[in-house]
Design a protein around this nucleic acid. Structure first.
Length: 486
DNA sequence: AAAGGCTGTCATGTA
DNA sequence: TTTACATGACAGCCT
């Protein structure tokens, strides 16, 4: 380490303001490793120096690409400006200049005041930086918390964003249910007797292949596995009437709250079908023990079964609407594909039970009936598809909610970025001004220094330097270069 | 006729 | 192993 004061020249304290007796030209600073002496003799210049250094360090932290404070301080030699008006206490009234050249000494008060107080003082800076943060943090929803609360929080926007669509769905679902009702009430018998061609034509990709493929319980596989011995109709023969399917799809609408769907399933089944049919203790504790139904009932009984249950794999939640509108509309809604399959195979219990019963109750239900392999396979497929359909609906709902949440978060981050950019811009402006002031102060101090002969020191040959103890020394440039090399 | 949204379904993974 | 659930992918339908 090179000594700081190897070539320190004695300073003639011609400037009373800057030179404190016994300390040489001493000024406090925040050099790394240095601290302010904090003596009672501290002048306003000391305070200004400290603040300048603090701002400089902060600016270096934020803008590392820029030159360091020391570089700017000792290399930039601005013209001298008259002293006076440097007091910190006076410097909080006028707007700052765009540059030092535009800010003469007599306007420093204002120049300094507007920029410095809000930016460069550590406390003010801290407030500016962290003051607004708590609200930001509070507004930001952590992912972990979102997973617990976002659904609730986003329910409202979801409803708002989908209100028109939901309204449309509500209206169309009503007509769909009404038409479904009429299908059963006016054509139920004939529908059951429809030809296989009429029931054929599935709309989905998997319709032809899914039953065998998706039925591990059906070892036979293929359409033959769904062959109905009783009525001579295969699983695939029970596919949708394309015209009716189109009409149904055109009016199928679901309510937003899919969670109620399962409830509707159970509710409808409990209130309608199982009021006269065998049931399970799990869902109907007070209901009589079901009497096993041996094989398929009569066609009319099945029609009543599915009609009364009001269950649709695609719209059970509209059951209440359907029931309310009974007898008032003449166009029934078509059945779902699985409903038609169940009808064709004469499944003796409603789809609501198939889908929503707990597995134990579902198995118990199956034990009360003697079902063929085709019927069992169909029932299990219906259960699987029904559950998966609800799961898919919930999954899509969650996905939409997640998208909404992320969009909100993105907007918040954009706003935060804009605020930070503006804050940085203000800091940079303040720093530029302070640098100008520092340069002027440096020149001012330098101009008051005199050698033994009373001659001013040359800025080209000497520079002011501060030691860690806060004292200022006039150091020849050659000495400084040696120090830098060290 | 093409595009986008909605829906059901299947396959697959996870608990 | 079974069951329920979640989710990506696909296809059909509708607007």
């Amino acid at each position: 380490m090179c000594s700081t004061a190897n070539y320190v020249l004695p300073l003639r304290r011609t400037c009373e303001v800057l030179a404190t007796p016994g300390r040489g030209v001493s000024m406090s600073a925040n050099f790394p490793g240095a601290r302010s002496h904090g003596a009672p003799q501290d002048t306003e210049m000391d305070v200004a120096w400290q603040e300048l250094m603090a701002i400089t360090e902060m600016q270096e932290f934020q803008a590392p690409s820029e030159g360091s404070y020391e570089t700017t301080q000792y290399q930039t030699m601005e013209p001298m400006v008259p002293m006076g008006g440097y007091g910190m206490a006076q410097s909080h009234s006028e707007p700052p200049p765009a540059a030092c050249e535009l800010c003469p000494a007599d306007t420093y008060d204002g120049c300094y005041s507007e920029e410095v107080p809000s930016c460069h003082r550590p406390r003010s800076h801290s407030e500016a930086m962290y003051g607004p943060e708590p609200p930001h943090n509070q507004r930001m929803i952590p992912i972990s918390s979102y997973t617990q609360t976002s659904h609730m929080a986003l329910r409202e926007p979801m409803n708002m964003s989908g209100s028109s669509q939901g309204h449309r769905r509500a209206n169309t679902s009503l007509s769909r249910d009404l038409r479904r009702h009429m299908l059963w009430t006016t054509h139920g018998q004939s529908l059951h007797a429809r030809s296989a061609d009429d029931l054929e034509s599935d709309s989905g990709l998997s319709l032809g292949s899914s039953p065998p493929l998706a039925s591990p319980d059906n070892p036979v596989g293929g359409a033959s596995g769904y062959q109905s011995v009783d009525i001579g109709m295969t699983y695939s023969d029970v596919e949708a009437d394309s015209v009716a399917e189109h009409a149904r799809r055109a009016h199928i609408q679901y309510p937003m709250d899919y969670q109620n769907q399962s409830h509707s399933y159970l509710q409808s089944s409990d209130q309608s079908y199982f009021s006269t049919q065998p049931t399970l203790s799990h869902t109907q504790g007070n209901a009589p023990i079901p009497q096993p139904v041996k094989q398929q009932g009569e066609a009319s009984a099945l029609n009543d079964l599915y009609t009364d249950s009001g269950v649709s794999i695609r719209g059970s939640s509209q059951h209440n609407m359907y029931r309310k509108s009974q007898g008032s509309i003449s166009t029934p809604a078509p059945l779902s594909r699985d409903e038609r399959r169940a009808m064709s195979l004469k499944i003796p219990f409603p789809m609501a039970k198939i889908i929503n019963l707990p597995v134990d109750d579902f198995n118990e239900l199956l034990t009360h009936y003697t079902l063929t392999e085709s019927q069992l396979a169909l029932v299990r497929d219906i259960r699987r598809r029904g559950k998966n359909k609800v799961a898919a609906q919930n999954c899509r709902k969650r996905k939409l909610q997640s998208i909404i949440h992320l969009e909100r978060e993105l907007n918040q981050l954009h706003g935060q970025r804009e605020r930070l950019a503006q804050e940085r811009h203000e800091f940079q402006r303040s720093l530029a001004f302070i640098k100008c002031r520092l340069t002027d102060l440096y020149s001012e101090v330098f101009s008051h220094l005199r050698d033994e002969n009373g001659q001013p020191y040359s800025v080209d040959d000497y520079a002011l330097q501060q030691t860690p103890d806060g004292k200022m020394y006039l150091v020849p440039h050659t000495n400084m270069q040696q120090r830098e090399q060290c």
